[in-house]
Nucleic acid binder design. Structure first.
Lengths: 200, 200
DNA sequence: CCTTATGTGTAGCAGCCGCTACATGCTTAT
DNA sequence: ATAAGCATGTAGCGGCTGCTACACATAAGG
């Protein structure tokens, strides 16, 4: 009996559960995490709240599964920057272009929703937000080191770049004119062009 | 009869309403805007949801009153930077130090809550978020111009600084170690020290 | 063939939400 | 003194929330 203990959640077959998790993540990426309600979610997935609870045990675990899947997807999508990236500024331009795409915007929005939830209930959400940020921070820090940034500067610079891109992406989502955020991002890259780490 | 038409909301005396608006804003600054519920709010204010609806007409208008008051307070608190600020980097350091204070953190969190709501329902919240950002953006742009930043660069640079500080403040609120955000903010200021607009 | 485990539909629970109907004092104006 | 309008308490409405009890169908195992 290949039974796996999922706690309060039943079901031997993982496939249905995994399939649902993917659909849940798609829905969350589109509608946000903050007002998430089981019944509309289930309706969009052609199921019922009953079945979601059946497969995941609780709403909290359902969200956890979706977030874990999101982290997997992000880690898989985190490609090393191409060889055309020869400076920190180029790296930032590359990151921003991927963030300006709809999928990047959705992922960023999920991260921001999560952060706002973490600002309200830190002990509950901090682990999730750091888990979701990991696939961005670590490769970025590595990329900075590879570009010749001093070891002591790589960490704060990585934090700065991530925070700046988050703020700019939020601005872009909300502001009436997205081009302003694009201009600001370009200004940020120009600023980094003069960074001592941008040699070569 | 000094009756003022507040639409569906009653009450001739403004003072009780204004007093409540201030208390509501205090509560929102502490507990966030996102899960706001009338009954706990009223309990914290020694009133009832009944009276809040009575004075403000609806929850939406109550939130609107609190946000308008927040904008007033922010505009009043937006002091011109002291004479010690002689460069863009100094300005950013000054802004960050005020943002790192609890009151600045609360205001930023309100702005971020609002932005996340606006990402979900733009047509409903965009006006509020831009209204709340105004008291920051305009003085900042003016300050940049006064510091000698070129006219064409002031606007994107102001957007960049605001977005970066937002992102850093969010990071500081959520991350386990706030010092990382402080280091990143310092790195940002150092970056701006090499900006051509920073010529004393 | 019967039992046992798994998936699914229906109905409903308690609790919260914004909001309202109604009654009731209180103050003020006539 | 009376009437009108303001402020407040009580109770409750319909609707939504996460979640559950129960019935039932199906399919696999002994």
């Amino acid at each position: 009996m290949r039974y796996i203990d999922w706690g309060d959640c039943y079901g031997r077959a993982m496939d249905r559960r995994a399939e649902l998790a993917g659909q849940v993540l798609d829905y969350v990426l589109e509608h946000g995490l903050i007002g998430l309600s089981l019944r509309p979610l289930a309706a969009a997935l052609n199921t019922s709240d009953r079945m979601l609870i059946y497969h995941f045990g609780s709403k909290e675990r359902l969200v956890g599964a979706a977030l874990a899947l999101a982290q997997q997807r992000l880690a898989a999508a985190a490609e090393p920057p191409g060889e055309a990236v020869r400076s920190v500024a180029d790296l930032v331009r590359h990151l921003w272009s991927s963030l300006a795409h709809p999928s990047g915007t959705q992922a960023t929005r999920l991260y921001l929703d999560l952060s706002v939830l973490a600002a309200k209930e830190p002990e509950r959400w901090r682990a999730a937000v750091e888990q979701l940020r990991g696939p961005w921070r670590e490769p970025l820090r590595g990329g900075l080191l590879a570009l010749g940034v001093a070891a002591g500067e790589a960490e704060p610079l990585a934090d700065l770049i991530l925070a700046t891109l988050d703020g700019l992406a939020l601005d872009r989502m909300v502001a009436a004119d997205p081009a302003r955020a694009d201009d600001a991002a370009a200004a940020f890259a120009d600023l980094l062009d003069r960074h001592p780490g941008a040699t070569r």
